[in-house]
Simulated assay, not measured.
Amino acid sequence: MAAPTLRIEAERPDRLHVVLDRPGVRNAIDAAMVDELHVVCAQLEAVPRILILSGAGGVFASGADIAELRDRRREDALAGINSRLFGRIAALPMPVIAAIDGWALGGGAELAYAADFRIASTTARIGNPETSLGILAAAGASWRLAELVGEPVAKEILLAGRVLNAEEALALRLVTEVHEPDQLDAAANALADRIAKQDPHAVQATKRVFHASRADHPAVDEQAQAVLFESPAKFALMDAFLARRKKK
C-alpha cells in the first residue's frame, strides 16, 4: 500500500507501521498525506489492527504544509481538514502509537496528541507554534493538550510558544517512554507486542468505553461487559487461567 507521502515500514496481522515520508519538508502534512491517512484509517476500521505512526528522516512531522496552509481560506477552516482526520485516527478500534523522533510541531503535534500512546526519542521536540503564524491549533490541541498535560502547561505551549523537549514531555506524562533514536522503532513494537498479548475484542471495548462521555457511564461499561461476558475468548482465557492456577 505504498503511497507518495507514506511508507509502510511493517505490516503484520496484528499491526501496521506507517511512516510519514516527506523528509524534504520535514514530513509536513499536506492534502495528499491527509487523503492517504484516510485510506489507512479505512483499512484499520475494516480490519482492526494496532497502528504505529512515525516519521522519516529523524522528524515526526513539522506541522501542516505552510505552502498549502497559506492559501487556505474560511471554507477550508470550516471543512476541518486535519481535525476530522485526527478524530478518525483517535477513534480507530485498536490503539494507536505515535513514535516521536525529532520535531512534532503544529499539526504534527496534534496528530501525536490523537494517538493513544506517545513514546519519544531523546531528540523529540513537541509544540504548537500556530499563533506565531497568525492562526490557532484547531485540530485538537486546544482541548486534547489540556487533558494530557493540564491547563497551565497547555497554555504555555499554545499561547506562549513553549516547545517541550523529551525530558519535559516525559515528566509531564505527555510521552510515556524516551529512547535513543535508533531504538525508537523497537520500543514502539515492544509496546505493540504488549497490546497484542491482550484479547483484541477486550482491548477494543476498553478503548471505546474509556473514551465515552462521563454521562454514558456506567451504562456503557455494563453494556460492553455484557458482550464480553458471552465471548468465546473470555471462556477460553479464563479456563486457561484456572488450569494454570490448578497446576501450581
Rank of each mutant, 00 (worst) to 15 (best):
I195N: 00
A112W: 02
L164I: 06
G150S: 09
I126L: 15
W103K: 06
H201R: 05
A115Y: 06
R118F: 05
R125C: 12
E168P: 14
A190F: 02
A190D: 13
L170F: 12
Y113T: 07
A188P: 13
A215M: 10
G134H: 03
N128R: 03
L158Q: 01
E168Y: 09
A115K: 01
T131F: 15
W103H: 06
L170T: 02
L133I: 04
Q204P: 05
G134A: 07
E180Y: 12
K197W: 01
R125N: 05
L184S: 04
G140S: 07
E151H: 03
A154D: 07
A98E: 09
E151A: 15
V153Q: 05
R125E: 12
L148K: 14
A196S: 12
V175W: 03
L136T: 14
L111P: 01
L145S: 07
I195K: 00
G127Y: 09
V203L: 14
A146N: 04
N165P: 13
A212T: 02
M94I: 00
N165Q: 05
A104I: 08
A166N: 02
S132Y: 08
L133F: 15
E130K: 00
Q198E: 13
H211A: 13
H201M: 09
D101A: 06
P93Q: 01
A114E: 04
A188Y: 01
K155G: 05
L172D: 01
D182G: 11
A91W: 10
P93K: 00
L174M: 11
F117P: 08
A160F: 12
S132G: 12
T206C: 07
G150K: 04
F210W: 11
P95D: 00
I119K: 02
A186F: 01
Y113H: 09
A114L: 09
G161K: 00
A90H: 07
L145H: 05
R162E: 12
G140N: 05
V203N: 03
L159S: 13
A154S: 13
A139D: 08
L136W: 10
A192T: 04
L111F: 11
W103P: 04
D116L: 09
A98G: 07
A166K: 00
L105S: 10
L170M: 05
I97T: 02
L92G: 01
R125V: 15
T206E: 04
P200I: 02
E168A: 13
L184A: 03
E180C: 11
G150D: 08
A115G: 13
T206W: 00
D193V: 02
